[in-house]
Design a protein around this nucleic acid. Structure first.
Lengths: 127, 127
DNA sequence: TGAACATCTGAACAACTGTTCATATATTAG
DNA sequence: CTAATATATGAACAGTTGTTCAGATGTTCA
């Protein structure tokens, strides 16, 4: 994302093909813009292959940074950076046991969303 | 995403805190990497606020580019660019009626995923 | 045909992203 | 205390992203 603002608060352009009835009806059913930004942020976090690999692994078991790094063939630093993003989005939680920090999924919504995406892809890319 | 390759195909570093048993078990349960990339791509497409607004609108009704542009306060060009991405990902389908092209969601998985995300956010950001 | 409209497309640009590297912090063992 | 290990963090860089602008298609109608 780059520039975001249109010149003003007016409609984006002079459009003539509007279906006024549809706009009226749909306009009231739209999700609150701020909530929608949160949802988009959630999908964005899950939209990176490295992070989704981490989510995939944590669905199966809690794991420490080193385990994830070895399993996913990433550097511990890269894993840690991505875990920070997952942490900030409340997708994962963690517990400390001595030197080792164990990460796990924060709730079952995350795995639900993951599996919904999986189902979609499987049905789209299979005969 | 930028650089992606580690120096070689070897493990990313010499890690000593591995939980071998966990890695063995989890390693076999991981989703196929290529499938996982598709899933990540799906979430990535839904992870942009503008595109998610479009999805949100199309859940409620099929619409033409001009309607979307007016409803979402975007330029028709920007809408068209995003619709192309949604089209390439098979999230939307379209039909032509004269000059006007009507877009709609391609299947119910998309709205399922959208609502799952919505539920997650509502439960996370509410008392 | 030619004007008007709806949509698409390519180039360009600033903002953003994920990784690497070097370094810092935290915890334990000796 | 120090050494060793596990994780976190900041800067830097190349690759990517979404928007805008200008112009190109495609469709209808007089």
């Amino acid at each position: 994302m780059a520039k975001k603002k249109v010149s003003a608060d007016a409609p984006a352009c002079e459009i003539t093909c509007l279906h006024e009835d549809v706009l009226k009806r749909v306009g009231h059913g739209l999700t609150d813009p701020e909530v929608l930004r949160w949802v988009a942020a959630l999908f964005k976090v899950m939209g990176d292959p490295s992070r989704l690999k981490i989510v995939n692994a944590l669905i199966l078991s809690e794991m420490c940074v080193c385990d994830l790094a070895a399993l996913l063939k990433m550097t511990p630093s890269a894993v840690s950076h991505q875990l920070q993003i997952l942490r900030q989005s409340d997708l994962v939680k963690w517990r400390r046991d001595g030197k080792i920090i164990y990460y796990s999924l924060d709730d079952e919504h995350v795995s639900n969303i993951f599996y919904q995406g999986l189902v979609h892809v499987n049905e789209k890319h299979h005969p």
